Amino acid sequence: MKTLLYIHGFNSSESSHKATLLGEAAKQIGQANAVISPRLSWQPAMAIKQLEAIIEEKQSQGITLIGSSLGGFYAAYLAEKYHLNAILVNPAVQAPVLLKDHLGPQTNPYTDEEYELTLAHMKELEVLVVTEPAPALYWLMLQEGDEVLDYREALKAFPQTNRLTHEQGGDHRFIEFERFTEEILRFAEIIID
Rank of each mutant, 00 (worst) to 15 (best):
F73D: 01
K156L: 09
F180V: 08
L70A: 03
I48M: 02
Q50P: 07
S60F: 04
Q43K: 14
P109E: 13
P135W: 01
V148Y: 11
M122K: 09
L140P: 01
F187Q: 06
T20L: 11
A95E: 08
V35W: 02
L84N: 08
V129D: 06
Q59G: 07
L40I: 09
F73Q: 08
F73N: 03
F177Q: 09
R39A: 13
L78C: 07
P135H: 04
G23N: 09
Y82E: 08
D101Q: 15
G67D: 00
E52K: 09
I87H: 04
M122I: 15
A136C: 09
W42V: 10
P135D: 04
A45Y: 06
R152C: 00
Q106S: 06
E52S: 09
N162C: 13
P109N: 03
F180N: 11
M141A: 06
Q50I: 02
N33F: 08
G71H: 07
L125C: 04
Q59M: 15
Q168S: 14
A32L: 12
S13H: 01
F10T: 03
Q61A: 14
H102G: 14
M1D: 10
P105H: 11
L65I: 10
E114Q: 14
G104I: 09
Q43F: 05
L99P: 04
G62Q: 07
D101E: 15
S12M: 09
W139S: 08
E124C: 05
T181N: 12
V89F: 01
D101P: 07
I55T: 01
M1Q: 11
L117M: 12
F10H: 01
F158L: 05
I48W: 02
G23Q: 12
S37I: 08
E80T: 07
Y6N: 12
S12E: 05
L137D: 06
A75V: 08
Q28V: 09
V148I: 15
A134P: 13
Y151Q: 03
S37W: 00
Q168M: 13
L142Q: 01
L140K: 09
F174S: 06
R152V: 00
L128F: 00
P38Y: 02
I55Y: 05
A26H: 08
E132D: 14
T161W: 01
F10V: 00
L5I: 12
I190S: 01
